[in-house]
Design a protein around this nucleic acid. Structure first.
Lengths: 198, 198
DNA sequence: CGCACACTTGACACCGAGTGTCATTTATGG
DNA sequence: CCATAAATGACACTCGGTGTCAAGTGTGCG
């Protein structure tokens, strides 16, 4: 075992980022996103506004940070699927990650609350869609190399990956708006079967 | 013929909005979106900043306004399709509007240039995705009443409409990035056939 | 131990988007 | 022609975000 995989500086930096994000979400859930000012947040964290912006490039990034990671994991997972597996099946498998992401969250309540705030806030929702779209592009790149159909003038792979993500979003949304009445995986199966029965 | 379908005030208001949007797009294409300030724009239009914001609620709305209309038309068009037509076919027909939207534009060059600016600008792109998502919701409402499957806990209709929109976006993107090498309609057919051959 | 160097922080000034307010101008309709 | 409503401009203000610089804090090294 290697003694220090990350330099000390980097570790404290990540710790601060983590605490900051957590504190922010708590404040957002309590008072609302627009009502929580960066100055409030910085004060609550005991730092200056300027210092806050050295940890997060924007207020939105406080909320959107997690999706970054998720996208990369999805792309990795897809690359790890057997090459001869139909792409639709691979995508279904890969989306299992998202289920984990939700269900394994220790403080699910806050996460869900925050997720709802995002959907109700115009700018945040737009930003959220942008992140999903970036996820999708990562996965699309992977899918193109996997299928060998990498001609950018061919819209078909993009259409398939996009369709799969639509299923993911439909399931996600339903799961949130029905207060988790059904397990996420079931919703996802229903959605994906409606497009391409397997 | 009715003498005044719209009150005079409303007509001048729309005229000003139109000129403003046109002027703005010209400036954005010429100097860039971030580099064009609202003060610049207001000055160029011979009005104060405050007055500008009485015509447009935000800088983004200058660019996004058109998508509003498009979404409503799409929903209307869908409602007008025969009730027994398969939803996938109806959606394909309805998307013909978008083809018109592009191809019938008198000053296509500026429109395409602006569309590229949107895609390259993080905030604008996010906002654009948000508008598309709203379009999708309008269409989804219509699709739900049409199919009679209006249970919001059922993700299937959302998945199908979402998939269709993914095809639309895939075709749209391809059309833009390949500099209109193929007609939009063909790309759309390719994309939609890849999901559900008809 | 002490020094030099890199990194981090806070303070401050500044920019652009967007809003509230109010007085002034401009159009509309009787 | 006049009263009333709407449109405008001017001004001050908030908030997100950035550039700059000086002061603080830790780290590695001789």
């Amino acid at each position: 075992m290697q003694s220090h995989p990350l330099p000390v500086r980097e570790r404290t930096r990540r710790a601060v980022r983590g605490e900051l994000a957590q504190l922010a979400v708590d404040l957002f859930v309590e008072k609302g996103y627009d009502e929580t000012t960066i100055d409030d947040l910085a004060a609550a964290a005991g730092m200056s506004k300027r210092t806050f912006f050295r940890y997060f490039a924007s207020k939105e990034e406080l909320v959107m940070g997690k999706y970054e990671v998720l996208g990369e994991q999805l792309a990795e997972d897809l690359a790890a699927r057997p090459a001869d597996e139909p792409i639709w099946v691979s995508l279904r498998q890969v989306f299992g990650r998202v289920a984990e992401y939700f269900e394994s969250e220790a403080r699910g309540a806050t996460t869900v609350a925050m997720e709802k705030i995002v959907r109700d806030h115009p700018t945040l929702n737009a930003s959220y869609l942008d992140r999903v779209s970036r996820m999708q592009e990562l996965v699309l790149d992977e899918a193109r190399t996997r299928t060998g159909r990498s001609d950018p003038a061919d819209p078909r792979t993009a259409a398939i990956v996009g369709a799969a993500f639509s299923c993911l979003l439909a399931a996600w949304t339903t799961w949130l708006t029905t207060n988790q009445a059904q397990p996420f995986g079931e919703l996802l199966d229903q959605a994906m079967d409606a497009i391409q029965p397997t």
